[in-house]
């Protein structure tokens, strides 16, 4: 093991190689690795962001759904209420209508009764007259006694 020029040759080679590595290898790889690291970090960050947004959207959608359900329930409630009202109104109307029909029928009946009474009265007057005629066997002046007979009839 004798030391010789190889020592110097290797020293020169060493510095040249180290210099080459420092200039043309290390920075390029380092930059690429840094860039990739940054890209990965960014990717992860944006994925997280997207996750957050998705969660937000989901909870928003849930809120909307709940609101919509509430609204629908409200509308149904209103509709039911309205339907009830309408049914009540219809019932009332029907009752009124029936009432009215009853009254009209009653009025007609009353009228009919009155008319019958009138007719009866007229006939009673005539009957009484003819009866009295028969009793008295004499002709009574219809003109003179009609007032009295009418009064009689009105008392019926």
């Amino acid at each position: 093991m004798n030391l010789n020029l190889t020592l110097i040759g290797q020293t020169a080679t060493f510095f040249i190689f180290v210099w080459f590595c420092m200039k043309f290898i290390w920075p390029l790889l380092k930059t690429a690795m840094h860039e990739r690291q940054a890209a990965i970090a960014q990717g992860l960050a944006s994925a997280e962001e997207a996750d957050k947004k998705l969660a937000e959207a989901r909870s928003g959608a849930e809120d909307e759904l709940i609101k919509a359900k509430e609204e629908a329930a409200q509308i149904i409630e209103q509709a039911r209420h309205r339907a009830n009202q309408m049914v009540e109104a219809a019932k009332d109307e029907a009752r009124e209508e029936g009432e009215r029909l009853k009254e009209a029928a009653q009025a007609e009946i009353d009228q009919e009764v009155n008319r019958a009474k009138e007719a009866l009265r007229a006939q009673v007057a005539a009957l009484a007259l003819s009866g009295a005629e028969k009793v008295l066997e004499s002709s009574i002046d219809a003109g003179r006694h009609s007032d009295m007979l009418d009064k009689l009839a009105a008392e019926l």
Partner: peptide, 25 residues
């Protein structure tokens, strides 16, 4: 010694330089 040393050093430089030249993010 010199030849093998330089040769192996060049293997290192060429391999790593090839990777560095094509290095992308």
């Amino acid at each position: 010694s010199m030849a093998w040393s330089v040769g192996l050093g060049l293997v290192f430089l060429i391999l790593f330089r090839a990777a560095a030249a094509k290095a992308t993010a």
